[in-house]
Design a protein around this nucleic acid. Structure first.
Length: 832
RNA sequence: GCGAGAGUGGCGGAACUGGUAGACGCACUGGAUUUAGGAUCCAGCGCACUAGCGUGCAUGGGGGUUCAACUCCCCCCUCUCGCACCA
């Protein structure tokens, strides 16, 4: 029987080395950040994790990318802030607590302990003194203060909305918890229910949030596009249509006021209040049926399903204030109450949806905008003409272009008092009420005499009671915990009820980046000087799944805090990097697919440096990373190769002079040159676009050259100084990526100063300059030969040499040479 | 349907403002060393034809601009992501 192979045989002892340096960094507080106005700051932030239990490969990748940048910037002399914390409130803790019969707080804090240890084992350079957890009252107390300040400023309000309600669980469900119209937990039918909830007036900031997108030049265009679409600004007009035989007015919003003469009916959302007008008409029964049928159908609708356009006449007409036309009012299933005014003027000739609806119900079609190249006929129209054109059948506006008509018609409506220019947004106010336990309590009190009252600032924080915990009913225990909800009204002193809803956890992550600047500050939420020194975040890194909500909310909060005078930046994140997913075997890692890779096992088998190296090497950060176990072995091999070389040349490296001799031999010069070229390449890759994969490839090339020169160098005639220079550069260039490994080898090779105190290496352009360059010779665009020449060669000489070249002559033959193109120092193309 | 991005060897991926396509790594093949190797070292490795020197052909497909196109322009196909009746 074979002996059990020795663990790590043939490999460097990464376990020892990594433990040694991690201990060192922790005890020396190496990465502690202090404010220093004399130094250039760099705030690097990765999206903090939800403490779900353990770190996954997505975290490993995200935080490896961030750590390289943090360490790189430190070496470049920046004062770097690189904090880490925990997005610690949220529903999973409640579910886990139920499942394991524990308390969400206990579960959360245990996870934090475990995951913190995992992050430390990866060697990430965080300033742990700034660690924060959002479920800590010392954190959320300030969020409650913000809430009250926002309330005082009119940025918080309470209103009734329709929510997804599960009767058996007695709770509100988020949209993503409703699966095919059923509760994710008990499979009961989810019903719409009207409930009170608290809202942040994010729409007040819609315009600024949109406009400022143009200044976010350090963000991916993709994310900005998503944000712009989400805000969804449209410019148009609001027009009043009086309803016949009533004193009611139907307000509509349109982006096409130029088509107003073509309106032949009206479409209301089923929820629109004026739908009730049908009640006293013969249509009453039909309308009521339609409305309830539509509401149910909507809830059961699959996300990508297109429903058939339907509607019913509500028994009333309104008058087009422009034309005096009498138009029937319908309610239709494709009109959304949430957008605009919930009512649409239907112009079948110029809107495809209205066109389909009109054809189905035999409603008139009236062309009022003619294209410039042909004449449309209302009778024979096959589809709506949605482009702009020239107005027709529009009274005094005939002959105007659509653009002119929009302005003229809007102005006319304003003049006559039945309309005005209006801008609407798709963005809705942010509903933050959650009927959950594990979240920040909303600091409000309901008094039957005084109404809603904010908790006085001196009474903050409203602590989430630890003696409650979720039970299987699904209902928040806060609703029934008397010691929590029973309180006194701050206005009249009478008995009152505390708000028992908690805040959406997106609120915590909307300002944590600011708190990192001063996590120990007790006099208020934010210490102005420190916050203003560090903010904005210079580089933010995280998954693209947060491209809309988290980033939009964080931007909103930053502007609110600015207006509340807590900080003075307009935007929180100057540069944004959205890293790709980690996939394996062509699919996202997931338990159900069975392709999950456990970081712990990888660290044990290969060490943290190898895991970091591979996750940086396999793909550029913004692209998806295809995980490959074989690839990890390759990364490990590379580090071992470097380690072996350094170990076996330790004495030479320790004693080699730092100064380069002036008369190096050819091979030494080649190594010296490659060293400087590599520094140049790696510096550029890291500075420009964080393309670590090509940076690492460049270092590998340097190492390959070094090893091949040594192995064929029996005479040992390569200058030790050149070798030392190459090894030092290798260690410095890899330091941000494989910090334990490089620190150890740096020490072994006799440096007295620690690697972590070294500056980023610089290259000498003279040293990096090639002695000889290859110039490609083409005949008629095809490569036929190559010339090895001095880099100082002139174009004339190059041309001359090319024409003398055997291969060139062979392929030119006796054809006349038409022209010769010379790209300096690169290429010659002979056209014959 | 709309919007954005991408398509390069067996695989992950390189290629600066149009100028040697395939860096680096993985896999694979042959060899060396070894009791053995899943360790290490050396060599090869886009495809086709060729004994070889070579010569064609190649960056999703088709056209175009150019001395020269992965790169620029037009059309088409496929995939990924986001939005999806937004009036």
């Amino acid at each position: 029987m074979n002996p059990v192979p020795q663990k790590n045989s043939g490999r460097y002892d990464f376990a020892f080395i990594e433990d040694k340096w991690q201990r060192h960094w922790l005890t020396q507080n190496t990465f502690k950040a202090s404010e220093d106005s004399a130094r250039r700051k760099y705030y690097l932030l990765e999206m903090f994790p939800y403490p779900s239990g353990k770190i996954h490969m997505g975290h490993v990748r995200n935080y490896s990318i961030g750590d390289v940048i943090a360490r790189f910037k430190r070496m470049q002399g920046y004062n770097v802030l690189h904090p880490m914390g925990w997005d610690a409130f949220g529903l999973p803790a409640e579910n886990a607590a139920l499942k394991h019969d524990t308390h969400p707080a206990k579960w959360t804090y245990e996870n934090i302990d475990y995951m913190k240890n995992q992050l430390q084992r990866m060697g990430f350079s965080y300033d742990w003194d700034r660690e924060l957890a959002t479920c800590d009252p010392e954190y959320y107390r300030w969020e409650q203060l913000f809430f009250i300040k926002m309330y005082e400023k009119g940025l918080v309000y309470r209103k009734m909305t329709t929510v997804n309600w599960c009767e058996s669980c007695q709770t509100v469900l988020a949209n993503e918890q409703v699966i095919d119209g059923q509760c994710w937990r008990c499979d009961n039918q989810v019903l719409p229910q009207d409930m009170h909830g608290w809202f942040f007036r994010i729409t007040d900031y819609a315009e600024e949030l949109l406009a400022e997108c143009d200044n976010l030049t350090g963000w991916p265009e993709k994310v900005l596009t998503m944000q712009r679409n989400w805000i969804g600004k449209s410019i148009g007009a609001e027009i009043d249509f009086p309803v016949e035989n009533t004193d009611q007015v139907l307000k509509i919003f349109t982006t096409r006021p130029d088509t107003i003469f073509g309106a032949t009916f009206m479409s209301l959302a089923p929820e629109h209040p004026l739908v009730d007008l049908s009640r006293h008409t013969s249509q009453a029964e039909q309308v009521a049926q339609f409305v309830s049928r539509t509401k149910i159908a909507r809830k059961q609708q699959k996300p990508d399903e297109e429903i058939e356009k339907e509607g019913v006449f509500i028994g009333h007409y309104c008058i087009n204030p422009f034309s005096g036309d009498r138009i029937p009012i319908y309610t239709a299933n494709f009109v959304l109450m949430e957008y605009g005014t919930g009512a649409v003027m239907a112009v079948p000739a110029h809107d495809q949806r209205d066109f389909e609806f009109a054809r189905k119900y035999n409603l008139p079609v009236k062309v009022v905008v003619q294209p410039r190249d042909k004449q449309l006929d209302s009778e024979t129209l096959l589809e709506a003409f949605e482009d702009t054109g020239v107005l027709a059948a529009s009274a005094q506006f005939d002959g105007l272009s659509s653009a002119e008509a929009k302005i003229a018609i809007t102005a006319f409506a304003a003049e006559q008092g039945f309309g005005k220019g209006m801008t609407t947004y798709r963005l809705r106010d942010w509903g933050i009420s959650r009927q959950r336990y594990w979240g920040t309590p909303i600091p409000m009190i309901h008094c039957s005499t005084c109404g809603v009252q904010p908790v006085p600032e001196d009474d903050l924080p409203v602590i989430l009671p630890a003696d409650a915990k979720p039970d299987s009913s699904g209902s928040s225990p806060l609703h029934s915990l008397e010691s929590f909800y029973k309180t006194l009204c701050p206005a009249c002193g009478e008995e009152a009820r505390r708000e028992t809803d908690t805040m959406d956890t997106f609120v915590e992550s909307s300002w944590y980046f600011a708190r990192y600047a001063c996590p120990d500050f007790t006099d208020g939420p934010l210490d102005r000087d420190r916050v203003n020194y560090w903010l904005p975040v210079d580089q933010y890194i995280g998954g693209v799944e947060h491209a809309i909500l988290h980033l939009l909310y964080a931007r909103f909060f930053t502007k609110v805090l600015r207006d509340l005078d807590y900080l003075s930046t307009d935007e929180p994140f100057k540069n944004l990097l959205t890293q790709g997913m980690v996939i394996k075997d062509g699919a996202k890692m997931s338990k159900s697919k069975g392709n999950v890779v456990d970081p712990n096992k990888l660290i044990e088998e290969f060490g943290a440096d190898t895991v970091r190296l591979f996750s940086l090497f396999a793909a550029p950060p913004e692209k998806d990373l295809d995980w490959s176990n074989k690839g990890v072995e390759g990364a490990s091999r590379f580090l071992n190769r470097v380690h072996r070389f350094v170990e076996s040349n330790r004495e030479m490296l320790t004693s080699a002079p730092d100064q380069q001799a002036s008369n190096l031999n050819e091979k030494s010069r080649a190594l010296h040159r490659k060293t400087h070229q590599t520094i140049r390449k790696v510096t550029r890759d890291l500075e420009n676009d964080f393309h670590f994969n090509t940076a690492i490839a460049a270092v590998m090339e340097l190492v390959n050259l070094l090893l091949s020169l040594i192995s064929e160098n029996a005479e040992n005639d390569i200058a030790p100084a050149a070798i030392k220079e190459a090894v030092d550069a290798t260690l410095l260039l890899l330091a941000p990526m494989t910090p334990h490994f490089c620190s150890e080898l740096w020490e072994i090779t006799g440096h007295e100063e620690l690697l972590e105190n070294q500056s980023w290496p610089t290259f000498n352009p003279e040293s990096a300059k090639d002695e000889e360059i290859i110039v490609v010779l083409q005949v008629n665009g095809k490569v036929r030969s190559r010339l090895l020449v001095s880099p100082d060669i002139g174009n004339d000489e190059l041309k001359e040499l090319s024409l003398l070249d055997d291969k060139v002559q062979k392929f030119v033959g006796n054809k006349p040479i038409k022209k010769v193109i010379v790209v300096p120092k690169k290429l010659v193309n002979v056209v014959a």
